[in-house]
């Protein structure tokens, strides 16, 4: 998949420089997600994980590439068939404050997909919504049905967002930093809820996060992204017990540990993440890599298999 965003330039700049430059948010990534798994896209700002999520949820068009879902090539579907697909693929956003319409009561917000898809309305809809509210742990559901979002905590709002996303029986949910803006004491509840729903409803998740500690808890497989590319991908255990890519190692070493007696060595990386408009040549990580050598700025490494289900893009490996 590729997703390039053209950089908005003023008229004068376009005349002077001629070319359009692009933010290469997602730059040729390929991966597969198994039914029922939690597949995590992890990385820091600008790595392209959110853009990837939006592409998977069919919210923005691809620049190039294909997405196959349940055997079907989504990029080749006609709009009616695509609309049917959208019911199977849902998204939960990071911000529980802006993702809910402040003027819609909870019941209406959760039941909205049922109404607009002509699945149910009136008392039929109400019953389904009440069941759903109960399912996401908002009990008694009748009490929450008539509340407005501003009357709820961030954690409760995120449950509403989850309820809304599962009400049409989707198979696949993209969850973009679903707990980053929620109080820490509530995060585990939401994450455990998502895992319970997976079991109960046979869901598959693509989980997007910058928080590797959360990733370690929830994931089956993890892909580490840097500046639009996947640099390492594998089963959770392998990634944490045997990280191969220097960036993965640095990332893991930088995570604070809630234990005053733990001594960890933070791997120091030079500089900051380069702009996605001006991607470094060769291996895009070479400008910060503690192990850089002559091949790195010249040739871009591709993902190579380095063990069962463990791939890494690095000339050292």
């Amino acid at each position: 998949m590729k997703k390039y965003f053209p950089v908005q330039k003023s008229f004068l700049e376009k005349i002077i420089t001629g070319k359009t430059s692009y933010v290469k948010a997602v730059d040729d990534i390929s991966f597969s997600v198994k039914s029922g798994e939690v597949f995590t896209l992890a990385g820091e700002s600008g790595c392209g994980k959110t853009t990837t999520g939006m592409l998977l949820a069919l919210l923005i068009p691809l620049t190039s590439g294909e997405i196959f879902f349940d055997g079907q090539n989504l990029t080749k579907l006609r709009s009616e068939d695509l609309r049917a697909m959208r019911k199977k693929i849902q998204i939960v956003f990071q911000d529980p404050y802006s993702s809910l319409n402040p003027r819609m009561k909870v019941g209406k917000a959760v039941g909205h997909p049922l109404e607009i898809n002509d699945v149910a309305s009136g008392s039929g809809m109400r019953k389904i919504v009440l069941d759903m509210l109960e399912k996401v742990g908002l009990s008694p559901p009748e009490k929450f049905y008539d509340l407005y979002p501003h009357q709820l905590s961030g954690g409760q709002r995120q449950r509403i967002a989850l309820a809304r996303s599962i009400i049409m029986n989707p198979k696949f949910i993209v969850a973009d930093e679903p707990v980053s803006m929620i109080d820490v004491s509530l995060r585990t509840t939401i994450i455990n809820l998502m895992l319970d729903l997976r079991k109960e409803l046979g869901l598959t998740y693509v989980f997007i996060t910058h928080d590797l500690a959360v990733a370690k808890y929830i994931s089956d497989r993890i892909a580490i992204m840097y500046l639009g590319k996947i640099v390492e991908i594998g089963k959770k255990r392998r990634i944490f017990e045997d990280p191969l890519h220097p960036y993965t190692k640095a990332l893991i070493s930088a995570i604070p540990v809630p234990d005053p007696e733990s001594k960890r060595n933070v791997i120091d990386l030079e500089g900051e993440i380069p702009s996605a408009i001006n991607i470094p040549s060769g291996c895009r990580f070479h400008t910060r890599c503690p192990f850089v050598f002559d091949k790195c700025p010249i040739e871009e490494p591709s993902l190579k298999e380095k063990g069962k289900n463990h791939r890494v893009a690095c000339h050292l490996c």
């Binding site: 820490v184 004491s185 509530l186 585990t188 509840t189 370690k216 808890y217 944490f240 540990v257």
Partner: peptide
Amino acid sequence: GLLQTIPNIELADQKLESISGSP
């Protein structure tokens, strides 16, 4: 509750417990 609900990357197979209710 807080200590049991925060993921610790150094622990293998951590079981996270939640704190019920809301802030």
